[in-house]
Design a protein around this nucleic acid. Structure first.
Lengths: 365, 365
DNA sequence: TTGAAAGCGCTAACAG
DNA sequence: CTGTTAGCGCTTTCAA
């Protein structure tokens, strides 16, 4: 066995965390065979200590461990994955990771996954059917063990197929009936209802709606309608707009909404996320509308944006910390248990009142 | 060969994007052997068509392709990775993906990577030495082909070791001298200088500084000092604070700065990122300081936060779109060429003036 | 133009 | 308690 020590580098760096100093047989990688040879045991024995299984003399186990440490051996996960062990990686599909709600969620999900020994591959589906399909294929090639789907899939059938490939999946923030999988989300219907009710209680009667195309937003929209109904206020289609999530769309759609209703403009707007709300605020300011006097706004999600705008945004918060941790716990449970039951966890939304809403003066109503 | 067609499902779903309908030999997975058998060729031939290599009769190639399509065969990447082909995945290390600058960057990086056939694994190092080490190990286990490091590593030696494992790495937003690798960043020194100069030109003489601990921030700090020096203004250590990136820290450190200088408080603050700036704005408001009259602010980075705060923040922008694309192009080039040259690309920062700065009145100076 | 066969690094019976 | 051995699914010479 040849063991080349790169002394020069060692001195320069003064560290050997990852074991580059040893090279065996002039190869860069040290394999299970190298460890076995060096420890004077068989590869089977080494495999057992790697996986902490089987019985063996304590001395043997220790010896192997020592050799692994000095050679700085790192098992090749590809090989063990090939043998049926998992890849210890999961896929996280979102529309757009730069959306604050998803980057917050991604942070929590990645943390928890890492704690549990999993890595996460991110995918931006961009609300695009082709990308959805492509990512699903890639993720399957890469043998990911599970999927967290935080994006609204155009094609639910594709998602449903995943279980035939034995890869568990849990939907996050999308309680989509058509998808046969575990789901974790907030009660979107209730959230929509609460948002609208808050506005109604503050005296608003012309409430505009700018929400995304996702299923979750559809539920919020239903909640909105239901609240109006309970207050005996007619639903006006001209006050409702569906679009995609971005600041630009928020601006654009608010202008559109305002123009379409110039005779009887909305006094309040409900948006399905913070980016849209930011756009609405900008547009309202450009029209010299005072917030919340001329225009009140309630949004969904409680990201940093809701706190930093002027005025700060009244919003319906989702418990993302809880949801993020739950989703990885549930997914890993499904991976481990290979269970097929479907869990559905619905969280309560919470109204957080900030300065984009205020009780209207009597004479204004 | 047994070919079970799940007709019921087929009818229900009306789709077969991912090929769950076919099962061979009662296994879920269809392998290269299945394709070979079905096409009446050897696995070697199939391998060639998968990789688009070798010569063969056009008819053969076409036949194999057809079989792959009908069986909806997806090559197992683990196996090909084992054989020396890459894993087609890279690692992205950042301090915290929920930091807007990094989620924006992550978005761009993931997009470009996906276009080029790579997946990206995200890692939040949290500025924590242990996590850095652990991620590096995991990423090595998983045989990632390259690394994009957008976080300031506590232990540069660990990073330098990666090249001994033949895994290329490019630093993003951190021109760290100690790391022997390609780097893409903005000219932080110049950015710090520009920010400070802008404040000086607006009449400020007591300029506070709240920056991160990263090397990039050190450069920005040097730029700040240099600008003061060029204007013949003494550097006051009591005006400089180093901390980590968060809104909470921004608030806290601003209060601290203000208290420590209550006799002669700063009239302006330079922060190294938007989150700190947001914190400073909040703290300033709580002290009833008017911005920019009582306190001017210049930040670094141009995320959505800089536009949505009140007032919107004057900032030094990095060309993140360009940088994000460049970093993956460069990394993939290094992966493909196995080259060892080190590239360094420095971008020009750009001052974007918004409402946290304004020329001071003469009598105020 | 095609195929047989030898691995890649690891796991998991099954022997000894 | 430890080792032998047969794969996992794929790539890649080297023969045919």
């Amino acid at each position: 066995m040849i063991l080349v020590i790169l002394v020069t580098l060692k001195k320069e760096q003064g560290a050997n965390y990852l074991g580059y100093l040893e090279r065996k047989n002039n190869r860069l990688k040290v394999t299970i065979y190298d460890v076995a040879e060096e420890a004077g045991v068989s590869i089977a024995t080494v495999s057992k200590v790697i996986n902490n299984r089987g019985n063996m003399r304590d001395k043997t186990r220790q010896k192997v461990k020592n050799v692994m440490a000095t050679l700085n051996y790192q098992p090749n996960m590809m090989a063990s994955a090939l043998m049926g062990k998992g890849t210890k990686t999961i896929g996280l599909l979102v529309n757009d990771i730069s959306n604050p709600i998803f980057s917050d969620l991604a942070r929590i999900i990645e943390n928890r996954s890492h704690e549990k020994g999993y890595s996460v591959i991110i995918c931006n589906t961009d609300d695009n059917r082709d990308k959805e399909l492509k990512y699903l294929k890639v993720l399957r090639n890469k043998q990911v063990e599970g999927l967290i789907v935080g994006s609204s899939f155009k094609d639910k059938a594709m998602l449903n197929e995943m279980r035939y490939h034995n890869i568990p999946l849990v939907m996050l923030t999308h309680m989509d009936q058509e998808v046969l999988a575990s789901k974790i989300a907030v009660d979107d219907y209730k959230g929509g209802y609460m948002a609208t009710e808050h506005l109604l209680e503050n005296g608003h009667r012309r409430i505009g709606l700018i929400v995304e195309l996702a299923d979750s937003s559809t539920k919020r929209l239903i909640g909105y309608k239901e609240a109006l109904k309970d207050w005996n206020i007619g639903v006006d289609p001209k006050l409702m707009i569906r679009t995609s999530a971005s600041v630009a769309k928020g601006k654009q759609k608010f202008h559109q909404l305002y123009q379409n209703n110039y005779k009887n403009p909305p006094t309040a707007i409900f948006t399905s996320n913070n980016q849209l709300a930011v756009g609405v605020i900008a547009a309202a300011k450009s029209l010299e509308l005072a917030i919340p006097v001329d225009l009140a706004i309630v949004s969904f999600d409680d990201t940093i944006l809701a706190e930093t705008t002027e005025p700060p945004i009244t919003t319906i918060a989702q418990p993302i910390e809880t949801m993020g941790n739950e989703v990885v716990d549930l997914l890993i449970k499904e991976i481990d248990d290979k269970m097929n039951e479907v869990h559905t966890i619905m969280h309560k939304p919470q109204l957080i009142v900030r300065q984009t809403t205020a009780e209207k003066m009597k004479d204004e109503v």
